[in-house]
Write a protein that binds this DNA or RNA. Structure first.
Lengths: 199, 199
DNA sequence: CGACAGATTGGCAGTCGCTGCCAAAGGTGA
DNA sequence: TCACCTTTGGCAGCGACTGCCAATCTGTCG
C-alpha cells in the first residue's frame, strides 16, 4: 500500500538510478561546455560518467536529451499554466504567463545562460530544439483556439500564428540575452519584442 | 574569354552532371512521396538512380538537400527582393514581398504542395528546415534593422522578432494550406495570420 | 592520332548516433 | 536461502556521412 504520494518507495534501485542519471547529466553538460556539443561523443560521456553507452541510451534516448532536460515537464508546466489562466484574460497575457512559467523552470540563471548559449551556437542543437518547440506549439493550439473569437471563421491558422509569434519573441529575447551575457531580464526583452511586432 | 554569361561552356561534363543531378533528384522525390522520407535510404535512392552512394553525396551533401533544393538560391532571392524594396516601404510590406518572392520559386503548385506536405509530416525534415530558415532570418537582420526606427534604442531584438513573426505567419499559412489540400492562396492565409497577430 | 593533365567515379573502411538482442550481475521479497 | 525481476554491459548491425585511393573518362595539346 503506497503511503503519501511520491516519496515513499525509495528503494536502492531508485536511488542508484537517480545518482547515475545525475552523474551522466553533469558529465555531459561539463563536456559540452568545455569542448562543444558536436565535438563531444556519446562514447566519451559514457566513459567519463562510468557507464556503458548502452546504459546511457537507456537513461536518455538521444544526445539532445542530455541538454534539453525533461521535455515532458516543460510541456506539462506550459499547458497547465495556460489552462489555469482566467477565461477573461487576453490571449497575449495568457501566452506571456506560459512563457514566464517555462523560464522559471531553470535551476539557476547561470545554468539557463549556459544552456541558451550552447543552444544558440550549435546548429544541430538548434534544429532539434526548434522541432520540439513546434510540438509544444501544437499542444497549445486547442487551448488558445478556445480563447479566440470564432466570429472571423477558421481560428486554427490565426491561433497558430499567434502562438508561433509568442515563441518567436521569446527566441529573439533569449538570443539578445545571451549576446548580452545574461544582463537584464529576459521578460523585459520579450515585452519589447512583442511591442515591436504588435506596434 | 567567356562569351555571353552562362550558357557557353556546355561541355560533356557539365551535361552529364546536369543529367545525373536531375535523375537523382527525381528519384529521391518519387521515393520520398511513395514510402516516406525516413523510410527511404540513401542506398536505395542511389541504386535506383544508377549511381554510387559516394557520388550521390558528392552532388548533395546531405539527405535533406535532396528535398530542400538549392538553398543558396532561396537566400539570394530573399535578400535581393528585400534589398530592392523602396526605402519608404514599411517593414511589413518589405517582408511580405520577400515571402511572395520565395514562394514564387516553386516550379508548380503541385510540387510546392508535395514538398510542404512532406515537410510538415516528417519530424526529422522539419528540424532541418526550421534551422535553415533561422539562418535566413539572420541574413535578413541587417536589411530589416536598417529600415527600423533607431530612436527606441537597440533595434536588433526588435528586428529579429519582426522577421521571425513574418516567417511564423508563413508557417501557419502553409500548414493550413497543406491541411486544405492546396485550396486557396497561401498569401491570403498569410495576410489573415498577420492580421490576427497585429490585430 | 596519341599521350598527358585534370575531372569524375566507385568502392572500401571507418566514425558517430542509435537499436535489438542476450547473457551476466545485482537487488528484492517470501 | 531461493527464486524473481530489474538493471547492466557487450556485441552486432543499421543509416547518414567522410576520407582515401585506384580506376575511368574527358578535354587538350603536340
Amino acid at each position: 500500500m503506497k503511503q503519501g504520494a511520491k516519496d515513499a518507495p525509495t528503494t536502492l534501485w531508485d536511488r542508484t538510478r537517480q545518482l547515475a542519471s545525475q552523474e551522466i547529466l553533469e558529465t555531459a553538460l561539463r563536456l559540452f561546455t568545455e569542448q562543444g556539443y558536436d565535438e563531444t561523443t556519446i562514447a566519451q560521456i559514457a566513459r567519463e560518467a562510468g557507464v556503458s553507452q548502452r546504459t546511457l541510451f537507456r537513461y536518455f534516448g538521444t544526445k539532445e536529451d542530455l541538454l534539453g532536460g525533461d521535455q515532458d515537464r516543460f510541456r506539462q508546466v506550459l499547458t497547465d499554466t495556460i489552462s489555469a489562466q482566467p477565461a477573461e484574460a487576453g490571449i497575449w497575457e495568457v501566452l506571456r504567463a506560459g512563457v514566464t512559467a517555462v523560464l522559471a523552470l531553470h535551476d539557476s540563471r547561470d545554468q539557463a545562460l549556459e544552456r541558451f548559449r550552447l543552444l544558440h551556437n550549435t546548429a544541430s542543437l538548434r534544429a532539434g530544439w526548434l522541432e520540439k518547440r513546434l510540438r509544444f506549439q501544437e499542444d497549445l493550439l486547442p487551448l488558445i483556439e478556445a480563447r479566440m473569437d470564432a466570429a472571423a471563421g477558421g481560428t486554427t491558422p490565426r491561433a497558430r500564428a499567434v502562438i508561433a509569434t509568442a515563441f518567436a519573441c521569446l527566441d529573439a529575447a533569449s538570443m539578445t540575452w545571451v549576446a548580452n551575457d545574461g544582463k537584464g531580464d529576459i521578460m523585459d526583452l520579450y515585452d519589447e519584442c512583442l511591442a515591436a511586432v504588435r506596434g
